[in-house]
């Protein structure tokens, strides 16, 4: 469980007339065993936020600190596509992001492969697996480093509805079991409401418009009236900030 502190975060791409503001003065604190979803329309800076948090991109201004009990925190990342090395086997893909290849490390990787029900696919190459299986390997890879914080960028958006649903259930189960801090970017409001206990709504121009707590008990079924009400509230927020306006 990590503590994330974001102070006056600002990110721009390009210069002059081509300048685009991706994140505009974002301030945020989150930590502990939370599942935070970041929602908003395309181009509102959701993925940029995640890339800055994970160190792939650097901010134009502002500060981001991620700590674990005062020290540096370890992070894992699940991407929109699986991003596996095609020339390494499934097991080697997990080992690639570990600090060593010792027997205990291998056993840990195997445990997470088992958790995503791919325990027998360690020797396969990614090209031999289906898209859903590859995405599960990506999830196992992120968990296998036993990170303090897990970043996920629309991890189920490329999958069919049935696979996505079962992976969501798996992810929720793993989150509860491992007690991690999860920051989850999605454009799917239902997904955000069913999985998270906090939802951050971003508006166009990279502004953090709303921070909505989600205190409903788990498991959350989409047919549950309370869940439907919560979704409606998020959509109302979208409306209020103008994200649903069609021009």
């Amino acid at each position: 469980m990590a503590d994330i502190k974001i102070v006056n975060l600002h990110k721009e791409f390009g210069a002059g007339a081509d300048k685009v503001v991706a994140l505009d003065d974002v301030n945020l604190e989150l930590g502990g065993h939370v599942f935070v979803s970041v929602v908003g329309a395309s181009g509102c800076g959701k993925s940029t936020l995640l890339n800055i948090l994970s160190g792939i991109e650097t901010p134009t201004n502002g500060q981001v600190t991620i700590t674990q009990e005062g020290g540096p925190a370890r992070a894992g990342y699940v991407f929109q596509s699986a991003r596996l090395l095609p020339w390494r086997t499934v097991m080697d893909n997990l080992l690639f992001v570990q600090e060593d290849r010792s027997e205990p490390t291998r056993q840990r990787c195997q445990r997470y492969l088992d958790m995503v029900q791919l325990g027998d696919k360690g020797k396969k190459f990614p090209g031999e697996l289906s898209g859903g299986m590859q995405q599960r390997v990506g999830i196992a890879r992120a968990f296998s480093t036993e990170p303090d914080v897990l970043f996920m960028d629309e991890p189920f958006s490329h999958l069919d509805a049935i696979t996505a649903r079962s992976l969501r259930a798996e992810l929720h189960h793993m989150w509860q079991e491992t007690g991690k801090t999860v920051v989850f970017v999605t454009h799917d409001v239902s997904e955000a409401v069913e999985l998270s206990n906090r939802i951050l709504v971003f508006a166009k121009g990279g502004r953090l418009a709303e921070d909505i707590p989600m205190d409903l008990p788990f498991p959350r079924e989409s047919a549950d009236p309370d869940v439907a009400l919560a979704k409606a509230e998020v959509f109302r927020t979208f409306e209020r900030i103008g994200a649903l306006t069609v021009r």
Binding site: S54, G55, I56, A75, F79, F96, V97
Partner: peptide, 21 residues
């Protein structure tokens, strides 16, 4: 670039990135 970014996000060093990606 997507694989290199992936490795960076997991804190994989430049030598290991060169060797494996």
């Amino acid at each position: 670039k997507d694989l290199i970014d992936m490795a960076k996000s997991f804190g994989v060093g430049v030598l290991k990135r060169n060797r494996h990606i």
